[in-house]
């Protein structure tokens, strides 16, 4: 229940804060309204000028095609190819005709208009405002209230996590719950997972001398997917229960072992069995360190 309230407060607070922050200051709105006519005119001028680029690009294509065609000139056997170029050039010409081509004077005039509009647009005053307070909208109180609500939500959320972490331990310590009835926590189950990884690695080691290439690859895959991945999936609960600083070293040792198993797989696939053996041996060391760390933390 507490978690739900925390989620709701956090969500409402964040939405309110974003909405409050999103509104534009009045002075900026005024400024944007003033420059809008300039932007509309500029867009129109730029659209017209774009045709100049289109024409330029088409003319370049035509020149390139003509050049390639001319290089074939005089050779009867290439008449067919020449004809193909002619067809392509005719297509480009058709495209060129379909565009309202601007004269040099018109282009010059458009560029001048664009420069003048840009200058006038830049001359529009009012933004940024001289008073710093006017840089923020009048929805800032909404933003502040939203921030406050979200902070309350986070505090409740974190408290709920802490209570869940402490509750089973406290109940056990006070003898309210016998060991057998205590809620199963990730910290309780994690050592079992690590031990299962170690057992799977022992099996893997025992088959190294007689296993075929494919059998070994399959077995490493199996250790990763059936024994390591379940521990990886436990990590969020583990962090929640133990806290990040206590859970981090355990997870880092486990990840290191996982990477070494990946190395064993790659080395085996590449045909370096001895490297594969070394990597598995090294991985076993990492998992052992994870287990020691885990047991040490649980004893704390």
């Amino acid at each position: 229940m507490m978690r739900l309230i925390a989620y709701a407060l956090f969500g409402i607070g964040i939405i309110a804060a974003i909405v409050g922050g999103a509104k534009l200051p009045a002075k900026q709105v005024e400024y944007l309204q003033q420059i809008r006519p300039f932007d509309v005119k500029l867009a129109a001028v730029e659209a017209e000028l774009k045709t100049v680029d289109q024409v330029k690009s088409l003319e370049e294509t035509k020149a390139s095609l003509t050049k390639s065609r001319d290089e074939l000139g005089g050779q009867v056997e290439f008449l067919k190819e020449i004809n193909e170029f002619d067809v392509k050039i005719a297509d480009v010409d058709a495209d060129l005709r379909s565009i309202d081509q601007l004269s040099a004077a018109e282009v010059k005039s458009l560029k001048e208009t664009k420069a003048s509009l840009t200058k006038s647009r830049a001359a529009v005053g009012g933004w940024p405002p001289e008073k710093k307070g006017e840089r923020f909208s009048n929805a800032i109180p909404v933003f502040c209230v939203g921030v406050g609500i979200a902070i309350v939500g986070i505090v409740l959320w974190r408290n709920d996590i802490r209570d869940r972490r402490v509750a089973p331990q406290a109940e056990q310590a006070e003898g309210e719950l016998p060991d057998t009835e205590a809620r199963t926590t990730a910290a309780d189950t994690a050592p079992g997972y690590i031990i299962s990884v170690q057992q799977a690695i022992e099996t893997l080691m025992s088959m190294m001398n007689k296993a075929s290439h494919q059998e070994l690859l399959d077995e490493v895959d199996k250790v990763l997917s059936e024994h390591v991945t379940p521990f990886v999936e436990l990590r969020e609960r583990l962090i929640e229960e133990m806290g990040l600083s206590r859970a981090a070293p355990i997870m880092l040792y486990m990840a290191s072992g996982e990477r070494l198993l990946n190395r064993a797989w790659s080395a085996e696939a590449d045909g370096y069995r001895h490297e594969s053996v070394d990597a598995i041996d090294e991985a076993a060391g990492s998992f052992q360190e994870a287990l020691q760390e885990m047991e040490g933390r649980n004893e704390d």
Partner: peptide
């Protein structure tokens, strides 16, 4: 848009503080 950067940073801070 300093106002947007500043308010956005506060919201980001809150989101980052969530567990």
């Amino acid at each position: 848009p300093i106002d947007k950067y500043a308010t956005g940073a506060v919201v980001g801070g809150l989101l980052g503080a969530a567990p």
